[in-house]
Design a binder for these strands. Structure first.
Lengths: 136, 136
DNA sequence: CGGAATCCGATGCGATACTG
DNA sequence: CAGTATCGCATCGGATTCCG
């Protein structure tokens, strides 16, 4: 691996060294490192609806900066969740769509989203209780 | 909410302001902010096996620092996923166990872990391919 | 239009030292 | 034993500017 490539990939993920993992950890960290960041899930959700262009995504996801949309889509492409198609027109036109694996991930993630919706209130209650008990 | 409490809670999570969320986002960010960090899942997995004491957890989770174990368990307690029981003995003895909600979360997370195991290799392949194509 | 490059503040996390 | 307090580095992500 060249120094150039190291520089390229290090922008995308620090997971080159997964480090020692117990037994249950292996693999899930890579996925959680993606899903855990601020925008990946939202991009996944939007692309689940269909093919989208760059600015379409940005308009559909309020608050995401140009930079983070670039970074997020690029990471998703790298890991094989999203496919990028660039048409060499002027002005340029780029389409993003989920791969089968990306769709599979989105399905699984939506199970987590369902769980979140179910327990959202319970978490809030627990949190308020804790906060109330731990303020002097 | 007092300034004191704000200080306390701000150590645990920056999610006081979830910010504007589209429609699909609501709730899941709170959960992913937990699951996404380096140690939460590992602690969850270990506690899934049964009641554990502080040092038991630390020995069972290689690489976790005392500080991160404290922070992680405290966050899990705050959100109602883990219950903490302290016995005022000398030396002190503290037990951690999953709540029903915590067990439910661990179950859901393990679905994601299963997914990860299934696609782990495919991700690695996609990543290598991408890296190979994007190095000069 | 769809980025890339740079700067910078906020947060995450490890290491270390101290405590009831 | 089970923490707390402080430091310092690394990464994340927002804002801005430049480019083909």
């Amino acid at each position: 691996m060249s120094a150039t490539n190291t520089a390229v990939t290090s922008q995308l993920s620090g997971s080159a060294s997964t480090g020692p993992c117990g037994d249950d950890d292996c693999g899930i960290r890579d996925v959680l490192d993606r899903l855990g960041d601020r925008w990946t899930v939202l991009v996944l959700v939007e692309l689940y609806k269909g093919v989208r262009r760059f600015n379409q995504l940005q308009r559909a996801i309020p608050g995401i900066s140009q930079r983070m949309l670039t970074v997020t889509t690029k990471r998703l492409c790298r890991d094989g969740f999203v496919e990028r198609t660039a048409y060499p027109t002027i002005p340029p036109q780029v389409e993003y769509r989920l791969t089968d694996m990306g769709r599979s991930l989105a399905d699984t993630a939506s199970a987590l989203a369902d769980w979140s919706r179910t327990y959202k209130d319970a978490i809030a209650v627990a949190r308020d209780r804790w906060d109330a008990e731990h303020m002097q």
